[in-house]
């Protein structure tokens, strides 16, 4: 799947932004084989990479950590191909998301349950819910979405991707991406609506 992971055609960052990439020196050292420099890059970006992957895999800690490791190993392998045409953080984030999507693509379609949020999954009623409670419930509800619907929702509503990009990476039509997003939002509203009016 390395070839698919190579397809990182994220729009380029503005020239001024690229010139100010705070990672550029460290990236050059890492690309020349300096593992300590690469560890610096890991320390700077691990939380963001892991955050994106964790949400895409439905909050499964062990899987997210495994894929985060995989993403950084692939980044090391592909540093030779990084041409500073975007910010390193953008390139790395794209690669990380792609790593998680490859995991998603390897799943059987049957794992995409039609009704993932059943009666047993209704979130517990509480009084005086605060914003923090909503966030926790929302994370839990997102994690229980069918994998593809979750991927579309996370990429569009959390990561800010366009439907065209999502469709390209997930191998689906733009219309399908929009339909999956509509479905995912509907499932989330159904899960949260009664408790967060």
């Amino acid at each position: 799947m390395n070839a698919l992971a190579l397809a990182m055609s994220r729009p380029e960052a503005p020239v001024a932004e690229r010139a100010n990439d705070p990672d550029s020196d460290t990236v050059r050292r890492a690309a020349s084989g300096d593992v300590r420099a690469f560890e610096d890059l890991y320390r700077r970006h691990a939380r963001r990479v892991h955050g994106a992957i964790w949400r895409l895999v439905g909050g499964v800690d062990a899987r997210a950590e495994e894929l985060t490791q995989e993403a950084f190993v692939r980044a090391w392998q592909k540093l030779e191909g990084f041409r500073f045409e975007s910010l390193f953080s953008t390139w790395l984030h794209r690669l990380a998301v792609n790593t998680a999507l490859m995991d998603l693509r390897s799943r059987k379609p049957a794992e995409d349950r039609e009704d993932p949020l059943g009666e047993d999954d209704v979130l517990p009623q509480r009084e005086h819910r605060a914003r923090q409670d909503l966030r926790i419930d929302l994370e839990a509800a997102v994690a229980k979405l069918p994998p593809r619907a979750r991927a579309v929702l996370v990429l569009h509503d959390v990561e800010g991707w366009k439907h065209e990009e999502i469709g390209r990476e997930l191998g689906m039509a733009v219309g399908s991406s929009k339909a999956q997003l509509h479905r995912a939002r509907g499932l989330l509203r159904r899960a949260l609506g009664d408790e967060h009016e």
């Binding site: 691990a46 939380r47 963001r48 892991h50 955050g51 994106a52 964790w54 949400r55 800690d61 997210a64 950590e65 985060t68 966030r135 929302l138 994370e139 997102v142 929702l153 509503d157 959390v158």
Partner: peptide
């Protein structure tokens, strides 16, 4: 959704 934290520690 937009307000969800982007970062998470392993």
């Amino acid at each position: 959704l937009k307000d969800l934290p982007r970062e998470r520690d392993p």
